[in-house]
Design a protein around this nucleic acid. Sequence first.
DNA 1: CCAGACGTTGTT
DNA 2: GTCTGG
DNA 3: CCAGACGTTGTT
DNA 4: GTCTGG
Length: 225
Amino acid sequence: MCGRFTLTAPVAALETLFEAEAGDVTDMPRHNICPTQDIAVVVAHAGARHIVPMRWGFIPRWYKTPSDGPLLINARSETIAGKPAFRDACRTRRCLIPASGFYEWTATAGKGKEPWYIHPAAPDDGVIAFAGVWQSWTAPEGKRLVTAAIVTTAANESLAPVHHRMPVIVAPEDWALWLGEAGKGAATLMRPAPEDLLTRHRVSTRVNGMKAEDPELIAPLPATA
DNA sequence: CCAGACGTTGTT
DNA sequence: GTCTGG
DNA sequence: CCAGACGTTGTT
DNA sequence: GTCTGG
């Protein structure tokens, strides 16, 4: 699953990578992105790609308030096409959510929950793209909120020791298909990532706190005796 | 027909 | 809003 | 995802 | 314990 992630690339780099024009997206490294916060999202609209801010936590159209139901930070790929909450979004409002990596927690008896940082194994600062769906929600008073959820799938073999779910990661050659720019077949992209794409290491439990934000959050834990 | 759900995660 | 259950 | 709240009364 | 908020 994916309940916390990072994005440390500058907006200008995202514009180049995704061939998209950035809107009102805050340009700052983020090492601890939490649900309900604004995230950068890539959408295709009128023949061009745009990077826009959205609230992380999908609000179905029928909610009377943003908390009229559970916080939908994820959408299961196995059922997304049929669920009333996500069906329309799955068909017509897919998006990509750029990330540098994400966190998972393991619960080991006697050790409490231990956070891991999971990121591309390639030695550069590779940005990955989560599959997402988005929804514009209008409050009764007329206020508009644009929201998004990250699509999840079964964990691949290499991630399974840490968690049994993982975000769907869309390879660059498939971005156009997921964004709806290249015909049908987006559903086939909702599968676990290749086994060699990601690597991981333990990080400090400081990341548990939502207010923590600094580069040391993703630093490997010092070796312990 | 109307009333009520509509969702994810993990854990038991 | 749409779908399911009674 | 984790952290933090979770409640009432009256008085200021 | 469960629910809400970030």
